[in-house]
Design a protein around this nucleic acid. Structure first.
Lengths: 136, 136
DNA sequence: CCCTTTAGGACCAATTTGATCTTCTTTATA
DNA sequence: TATAAAGAAGATCAAATTGGTCCTAAAGGG
């Protein structure tokens, strides 16, 4: 239950690579894909999502590519995950209010609690910290 | 991300109904399905999982049906969810150790944290408390 | 105008989800 | 000992999601 999909994994690997580049350096999608060992066309889609949400900036043509739109320390793991997997939502019923055929269901509060906790954990993790980790 | 499936929802609704019956009372799957508003054949499969894991006891033949195998206060939401959705596992890599092509990945610790938190929340919720809630 | 590089959409195979159906096996009781 | 009333188990199936590919367009640089 609750598994991250490949898309999520790839997203994380890809943006970590970007964060490890010298600030301002433009990276090609082909380069990122090779480094992160992710299918290139698939990663391209993922980075398009990043661009739309303003996590990275993209430029086309010769010399084009991707750069982080903000310092890696200002991008959270939650943003990256939600960019490709959608909002963290342990139960559909957290969207609307009436889930138990009239009135919120008995488990509503529990799922809300789970959501809050998970969001909190992922909000505290920056891509910068991930990029730094384990380079020992 | 992290959504409970129908199966999980049905499982919870079904076992809550059982928990609301007078202790020891045998319920037919048809009765539970009707009360929980769940497709009967699908719910039957779910209860077979419960039985295999010892959450409920089943008996066949005339007068047969399902009863909780333990007091509702001794069955946790975690057990019910994991019975049908499998273990709470935010990332596949939590199963094996080497996930980042040699050595644990950079996010490994984070997912471990998420898993621990979610498991903890769901472990604290008993079916008894859910069955009682909102009968005001 | 050509080459490079991302953007966007169509498309596709494999897997998972959400179920149904059929055929047992077990059990009570008439 | 029939027989009807359950649940057990497995095959099957449609729809949705996942995990991708491919092609054409658009944008920038030389």
């Amino acid at each position: 239950m609750m598994e991250l999909t490949r898309k999520g994994e790839y997203a994380i690997r890809g943006i970590i690579y970007l964060a490890q580049q010298p600030p301002g350096r433009v990276s090609l999608i082909s380069e990122i894909a090779a480094a992160a060992e992710v299918p290139q066309t698939f990663l391209a889609k993922i980075f398009q999502s990043f661009a739309k949400l303003g996590l990275v900036t993209s430029s086309r043509g010769t010399g084009g590519g991707f750069v982080l739109a903000r310092p890696a320390s200002a991008i959270t793991l939650r943003e990256v995950v939600e960019a490709v997997e959608g909002p963290i939502l342990p139960n559909r019923c957290l969207l609307g209010s009436a889930c138990d055929r009239g009135g919120p269901c008995r488990v509503h509060g529990i799922w809300k609690q789970v959501q809050t906790e998970v969001v909190h954990i992922l909000d505290e993790v920056t891509i910068e910290s991930l990029a730094r980790s384990q380079d020992t």
